[in-house]
Amino acid sequence: TYVQALFDFDPQEDGELGFRRGDFIHVMDNSDPNWWKGACHGQTGMFPRNYVTPVN
């Protein structure tokens, strides 16, 4: 499953995934309602669910 970033996200903690608005992120785990795990630009980490939108 892929999502697209609605906003820039700069990691604040180790293990978070940084990205820029418009980036596509491969979702690896969406079991938590607020923080998902994904991959983008060769990196993996957690990111806030409300920063992304589903891609059809």
Rank of each mutant, 00 (worst) to 15 (best):
P33T: 08
P54N: 14
M28D: 08
C40I: 09
I25L: 05
E13H: 12
V52R: 01
V55I: 09
F7G: 07
H26G: 10
P33G: 13
Q12G: 06
E13V: 10
K37A: 07
W35T: 12
G15P: 03
P54Y: 13
F24I: 13
A5C: 04
G15Q: 07
Q12K: 10
T53W: 05
H41I: 02
V3A: 05
H26V: 13
G22D: 05
G42A: 06
F7Y: 09
W36P: 05
L6Y: 03
P33H: 06
L17R: 02
F19P: 01
F9H: 15
N34G: 12
N30G: 10
Q12P: 06
K37C: 07
Q43C: 14
F24N: 06
T44R: 06
T53H: 14
F47T: 00
V27Y: 00
H26Q: 15
A39G: 12
R21C: 12
D14T: 06
R21E: 15
D8E: 04
P54Q: 15
N34Y: 09
F7T: 15
D29N: 07
R20G: 07
V27F: 02
N56P: 06
H26A: 12
V3P: 03
N56S: 11
V52G: 03
R49P: 12
D32G: 11
N50S: 12
E13S: 12
G15R: 11
D10R: 11
F7V: 15
M46F: 10
D14G: 09
G22N: 06
M46W: 11
D32A: 07
T53S: 13
T1L: 04
N50G: 09
T1A: 06
R49N: 04
P11K: 11
V27R: 00
K37P: 00
D14R: 10
F47I: 06
M28C: 09
S31T: 14
V55M: 07
G45E: 00
G42Q: 08
W35R: 11
Q43D: 07
A5F: 02
Q4E: 12
V3L: 04
T1F: 12
G42M: 05
T53N: 08
N30Q: 15
A39D: 12
Q43L: 12
N34D: 14
F19N: 02
W35C: 10
D32P: 05
F19D: 00
D8V: 00
